[in-house]
Design a protein around this nucleic acid. Structure first.
Lengths: 225, 225
DNA sequence: AGATGAATAAAACATTTGTTTGAAACAGTC
DNA sequence: GACTGTTTCAAACAAATGTTTTATTCATCT
């Protein structure tokens, strides 16, 4: 058997798959070593221990994907807030679904989904470096869109609503398919999904803004009581 | 030490907590047995094996919560589709966040989140019994709202957008707090969250319908190219 | 060619963990 | 009060899994 990559990189590569599919606990270093065609001890040699390997995998996943689909807007990107919102959503789906990104749920995506549930110490660093900048970008877009007509809580709520859609589409793919029959969520309809989430969110944001203008304190029940 | 419940129920109760917090693998039967003040062997005695215990816990969680917050609309519930949408969303948040439901992310909610990632055979039954009816209810609401002006794919997309928001709010609670500072997601602001998701989604749905009417085939890029 | 340090290999080690066993305690019945 | 079936308990068992050890191979430089 030919080994195209040096052992260390081969291990990181395979480990990403296996950690993703099976989770940290179930992914034994023996499985990883065998799949990477490497010796068990070489994992400890290169990464100190299983935790060290996982840390390396996580860092690798984020650094590569955010290099490919950067968080910082490129020069020449649109300045119109609506356009920027579309670009933001589209980039998010690219990272989640595209082959060059996390390859959807069945690939690395699952590993990241797990980090949402049980963040490891390694994920803390990732949040600071890669995810928090995203939050600032979205905040500025929403701020421009609302022109000061939304309070902070509503703005956060809208941000969560937008992110929530993307994340759910990306992570609950197999589940959605199980419930909704032939509704495919993968790289091929990345554009359709981006477009839907964009239009849906735009409608939602506008409604929240309008409601805030005409009546910014009453809840649904109060209005109908 | 006094034991308020018989051993079997005490084990199910505690096991829900521990499975939720630590996941199936990390939740050892020794931890569970100790926390439930029961012998290790009694778990195997009552539930055959660890899988059997997990199955019992899952069934218990869903049956109790859906009995408390049923999926089937009660007689006397509103017939107006917008009102029905609000009720649907509110019930979902109740199940997710309320103490009598899954108690939010830190409680049983996490266990269910895990099932989205790695469905166990036991979850298949739960999907059929408890979750699929939900899908039919939401479908009928969206169908009434759109009055035949949305195709099937758009309707599913809207459904996913709505569910996605609720699920993300419920499951990513700690994560959101980490990113967005003091934005609390728990039982106390259940009404605020329901109201936001309702308004946001209503705006989104209306926009999707309008777009579908005036131009039901072009994507965002095509429209702007 | 020889020396040096990095990388790999096979085996052994120490723990953890799900499960089983056989005896003891308990509850209800005749 | 003896009998029977159920439940609990402590201990043992067997398999798995992360880690370490020791030896060997490989590459690089002098």
């Amino acid at each position: 058997m030919t080994k195209l990559l040096p052992t260390k990189e081969r291990i990181i590569d395979i480990a990403g798959d296996i950690f993703g599919r099976e989770g940290f606990q179930s992914a034994t270093i023996r499985k990883i070593a065998e799949a990477a065609d490497a010796n068990i001890a070489s994992i400890n040699y290169h990464f100190r221990d299983k935790d060290g390997l996982y840390r390396a995998v996580l860092e690798d996943i984020f650094s590569r994907t955010f290099q490919k689909f950067p968080a910082v807007p490129l020069p020449g990107n649109p300045t119109d807030p609506e356009e920027r919102l579309y670009v933001f959503i589209h980039a998010m789906f690219q990272r989640f679904l595209s082959h060059e990104g996390w390859g959807g749920f069945s690939g690395r995506g699952k590993l990241i989904a797990r980090e949402f549930l049980d963040p490891t110490p390694a994920f803390e660093d990732v949040v600071e470096t890669y995810i928090k900048p995203q939050k600032n970008i979205l905040s500025s877009i929403l701020s421009d869109l609302s022109e000061g007509k939304m309070d902070k809580d509503r703005m956060i709520s809208c941000a969560v609503s937008i992110i929530g859609q993307c994340v759910y589409y990306a992570f609950a793919g197999p589940f959605i398919q199980r419930i909704a029959g032939n509704f495919n969520i993968n790289e091929e309809n990345l554009d359709f999904l981006s477009d839907h989430v964009f239009q849906f969110s735009l409608g939602g944001i506008r409604k929240i803004i309008n409601d805030a203008i005409e009546n910014n304190s009453l809840t649904h029940q109060e209005k109908h009581s």
